[in-house]
């Protein structure tokens, strides 16, 4: 297991390093120097003095070669110093912290929702292949895959507003938006969370249901299932113990990748529903060429994805001895 994880890490760590270079490339990509603009902006507003100039020079290495500037940025990121936002004239981390937490919470909720829906539905569809219930779920899942998330969001919002007269945008009620964290605020967040969770999870649920159904149908015909049956195990017990267990493996190994699709998918939904996640912030940063903000968010999302993939590798290693032992 340790050997297996070491091998995985040997891939992910360089990958992360590479992604940090790419992210820095994004920061430096816009024509003209972002920091020149920043200095110009500060000067124009009359807040600029020599102290600022020296501070910026030390922080970003303005006139140093690329690798020095990169190093200053990366070592800052590791210390959670993400640079300054041009747009908001505040350190990026102050802007990002809350939204990042919200994004991760929403992501985890959505994944949990997706799995608790998709696993039982997928199993039932495969075991009862071509039954009425299988056809019904198949129809629903095509509907789920076919409906764009933002459309679903709009429909739900409109329905909630016109039928129940409530606004379901955002993650908080008005009174809590700028309030400091409290139990009440957390509870308020959970009561709002289910709507975006439903919207973001529909597509994934539908997809995973189809995948699990196909995997399980494959496994159900394998000889080891017949062996288990010939032992006298009851049908549901043997299905859950053997083929389901194996059909879930590819599922687990892709769990890490669902994170980025969730982030990019959530971008439009978050925009439509004005969710306080990092998606809208990233969009705004890119529009206004607020590059330290954009680059940092991209790098953080990449890192989160790799962590997710590593976690699913660990789970997979526990589930499948062939992978754990390198067979």
């Amino acid at each position: 297991m340790i050997q297996f994880l070491a091998k995985r890490l040997a891939i992910y760590v360089p990958m992360l390093a590479l992604m940090s270079i790419v992210s820095f490339g994004i920061i430096e990509a816009p024509p003209g120097d972002y920091l020149d603009d920043y200095v110009a902006l500060l000067k124009a507003s009359g807040e600029y003095d020599e102290g600022d100039a020296q501070r910026l020079e030390r922080r970003y290495g303005l006139d140093s070669p690329f690798y020095v500037r990169y190093w200053k940025w990366v070592s800052g990121v590791v210390r959670w110093d993400l640079g300054d936002s041009l747009e908001f004239r505040r350190p990026v981390n102050e802007l990002v912290n809350d939204r990042l937490a919200m994004t991760v919470v929403l992501g985890v909720f959505t994944v949990v929702f997706t799995w608790t829906m998709a696993i039982p539905i997928g199993i039932i569809s495969a075991v009862k292949q071509y039954s009425f219930i299988d056809y019904a779920f198949t129809f629903l899942s095509y509907l789920g895959v076919g409906t764009p998330n933002f459309l679903l969001a709009l429909v739900l919002m409109w329905t909630a507003f016109s039928v129940f007269g409530v606004s379901i945008t955002g993650l908080f009620s008005d009174e809590y938006i700028d309030a400091p964290w409290s139990l009440g605020k957390i509870w308020d967040m959970f009561t709002h969370m289910w709507v975006p969770m439903l919207i973001l999870g529909t597509d994934g649920t539908a997809r995973l249901t189809r995948i699990l159904r196909a995997n399980l149908l494959d496994e159900l015909g394998k000889p080891y299932v017949e062996t288990a049956r010939s032992k006298g195990l009851s049908e549901w017990r043997l299905i859950l113990k053997y083929p389901v267990r194996i059909a879930l493996n590819p599922f687990v190994s892709t769990a890490g990748w669902t994170l980025p699709t969730l982030f990019s998918g959530s971008l439009i939904v978050a925009q439509v529903m004005s969710l306080p996640t990092v998606g809208p912030l990233l969009l705004k940063a890119l529009q206004s060429q607020d590059m330290y903000m954009a680059g940092s968010i991209v790098l953080i999302l990449t890192a989160l994805t790799l962590v997710g993939t590593l976690l699913s590798d660990i789970v997979l290693g526990f589930m499948d001895p062939r992978i754990r032992m390198g067979a």
Binding site: A228, Y242, D320
Partner: peptide
């Protein structure tokens, strides 16, 4: 070769 479950 395939009559035992590979993960048990």
């Amino acid at each position: 070769m395939v009559s035992f479950s590979p993960v048990h």
